[in-house]
Design a protein around this nucleic acid. Structure first.
Length: 577
RNA sequence: CGGGGCAUAGCGCAGCUUGGCUAGCGUGCCUGGUUUGGGACCAGGAGGCCGGGGGUUCGAAUCCCUCUGCCCCGACCA
């Protein structure tokens, strides 16, 4: 049986905030004795922290099973060959934790398991009769984050649930996707989290179809999302599709002119020097993608969205702005003077959709201290391709209904992907359909950041005193606090209530420590047990105990005979959804 | 990857500029007593390779070099 007496529990709470903890969830998890840091981005779960983690896992597991998911367990340590086969050994980049064994064979610690599971499936699935198949695991994942931070929010090791769906065709994949989408809504709703499913970019997982991220809304979130207050549209800003904003600009006053612009190096400089609005400028950026160079054009007031840019180019380029040396060699000028006119023919020019709509533009002249004015993008620029390449800004029109978008910060706790045949083709996962034809499996993959969800829950549920656990995640649902350890009646009644609640199936813990009431109250608030039952000599003399809910702080005196049923009722109500 | 900061008792910090006697404070921990409904009080006590290595010096937590770890910010918008 679990240890449910605080005197025996390894739960080192801290009065003071550890200096290293930045965000509130991290601070509280350390202070409440749930986790301790082992190294940067690596944490040890203490008993209460582990109980919470297991609660979260259980919820996820139940919802996966409800959709027909079957649990498996794949290795963390994965051979490089499979990753080379899928092409991700190179494509995944520096975030992949790479390792060599004593024979110098290459391995990685899995950040995700598409390769492993596809390898499994290609060996086992032969017939359409074996599909669809939904397999999942709850497993540690590894990412060599460039900067681990915020405790469990962005660690190098973390717990993730990942399910992979294998279907006969696209219709089947769409059904699996919808199942998981629904399951995720249930998971986060059950946890009492305020979240939003947003359209997203597929990133390194890749795939062809739709993908949604599940974002827990919190100011500390690392992701910026936009959502429409009028319709259902919501998207990560990385993904949010931008429609060209029509601006009232002026036609050129005359033919294009070269004008001196001494010491002008930035858009702001140019705005000031020429007294023109940012929207009258074209920003030209020379990018280096793998070995190729390309010139990217956006309006002066916009920012390039490198994710969109990379996708427009087919993805998986290591895109970065070209160095000043490269710019000097190719265009003969400094970064601040780059422009789209008179550039080498072999240089690809790719423009955001707004650029060709400008009637006239100011742009760099590829010559120090000069810019062109009155250039006409639509006729004078040699533009090879036009895409939506810019970053969405707050207040822009909703692409679905036109209402002004709002923005929010989100913690990404889940993502669902339609992979299509990306991995089944790369690794050869095929089956024979009803006509005896060989087909590739249509795949999907679906992740929940289990450990991160816990941190997200705290970000959304805390106050000045500590954590306020939603009932489904609470390490214990109820704590019993005998205020005095000297009063035999108080102690005896507390123990009896504790046993009674256990019999009723309540997850209950007894604070039997020989501490003053204040200490026990502070710890109970810090750890965040949803219900506290307090027993003191005075109220007990009247046959009463105190029932307090952490969330509201409301207390009520209740007859000792009735309290167990009351506690049970509160818990049952809180677990309904 | 670039920049900055920090590393002294479990936790939070001072001391370092200007080298020097036994390295301090708060909190936590142990013992005894008094207390006992929101982190009590008194008395006594334990606990430090001052992050590692090297150097300067009669003498280094303190100055110099180096390594490591941790935290924060930035990562190029022409």
């Amino acid at each position: 049986m679990d240890n449910m007496r605080v005197s025996q529990l390894f739960n080192p709470t801290l009065r003071e905030v550890p200096a290293e903890a930045e965000v509130i969830s991290h601070q509280l998890m350390v202070r409440a004795g749930l986790i301790r840091k082992t190294a940067s981005g690596l944490y040890t779960y203490l008993p209460l922290g582990l109980r919470i983690l297991k609660k979260m896992e259980a919820i996820v597991r139940a919802e996966m099973e409800a959709k027909g998911g079957q649990e498996i367990l794949m290795p963390i340590l994965q051979p490089a060959e499979l990753w080379k086969e899928s092409g991700r050994w190179e494509a995944y980049g520096a975030e992949l934790m790479r390792i060599k064994d004593r024979h110098n064979r290459e391995f990685c610690l899995g950040p995700t398991h598409e390769e492993i599971i596809t390898d499994l499936i290609r060996g086992e699935i032969r017939s359409y009769k074996q599909l669809p198949l939904l397999l999942y695991q709850i497993q540690n994942k590894y990412r060599d984050e460039r900067r681990p931070r915020f405790g469990l929010m962005r660690g190098r090791e973390f717990v993730m649930k990942d399910l992979y769906s294998f279907d006969r065709d696209e219709t089947g994949m769409d059904e699996s996707y919808q199942k998981m989408y629904d399951a995720y809504c249930r998971i986060f709703t059950r946890c009492g989290l305020v979240y939003r499913a947003v359209e997203a970019d597929a990133g390194a997982i890749g795939g062809t179809g739709a993908t949604h991220e599940f974002m827990v809304l919190a100011n500390s979130g690392e992701n910026a999302v936009v959502y429409c207050p009028e319709c259902s549209y919501a998207a990560n800003v990385e993904k949010a599709e931008c429609h060209p904003q029509i601006i009232e600009d002026v036609s050129p006053e005359g033919p294009r002119k070269l004008v001196p612009t001494p010491n002008v190096k930035t858009i702001d400089d140019l705005v000031e020097f020429l007294a023109v609005p940012k929207t009258a400028l074209v920003k030209s950026l020379l990018y280096q993608g793998d070995e190729k160079l390309l010139l990217v054009l956006v309006r002066g007031d916009r920012e390039v969205n490198e994710i969109k840019l990379n996708n427009a180019l087919g993805g998986f380029l290591s895109l970065q702005l070209a160095s000043p040396e490269v710019i000097l060699t190719l265009l003969g000028c400094q970064p601040g003077s780059v422009g789209p006119l008179e550039v080498p023919n072999e240089l690809m020019v790719i423009a955001d959709a707004e650029v060709p709509l400008m009637k006239s533009a100011v742009c760099g002249a590829n010559k120090a201290d000069y810019h062109f004015v009155d250039a006409v993008p639509s006729t004078e620029f040699r533009i090879n391709k036009v895409f939506d390449l810019r970053m969405m800004e707050t207040g822009e029109a909703c692409p679905k209904c036109g209402a002004p978008l709002k923005d929010a910060r989100g913690i990404e706790v889940g993502q669902v992907f339609k992979l299509g045949t990306k991995y089944s083709k790369a690794l050869g996962a095929t089956y024979l359909d009803i006509n005896g034809e060989e087909k590739f499996c249509e795949m999907g993959c679906y992740g929940v950041g289990v450990s991160r969800s816990i941190a997200a829950a705290i970000e959304q549920n805390h106050d000045d005193y500590g954590i306020i656990w939603p009932m489904p995640l609470a390490p214990y649902q109820c704590i019993i606090v005998p205020v005095s350890t000297k009063d035999a009646l108080v102690v005896e009644t507390a123990v009896n209530l504790y046993l009674e609640l256990q019999r009723l199936g309540v997850e209950v813990i007894l604070d039997d420590r020989d501490e003053r009431g204040g200490v026990k109250f502070k710890d109970a608030d810090l750890v965040g047990y949803p219900i506290r039952v307090t027993l003191g000599s005075k109220t007990l003399a009247n046959g009463q105990v105190e029932l307090r809910e952490r969330k509201t702080g409301e207390t009520q005196l209740i007859l000792i005979k009735e309290v167990a049923q009351q506690v049970k009722a509160i818990i049952e109500k809180a677990l309904l959804f």
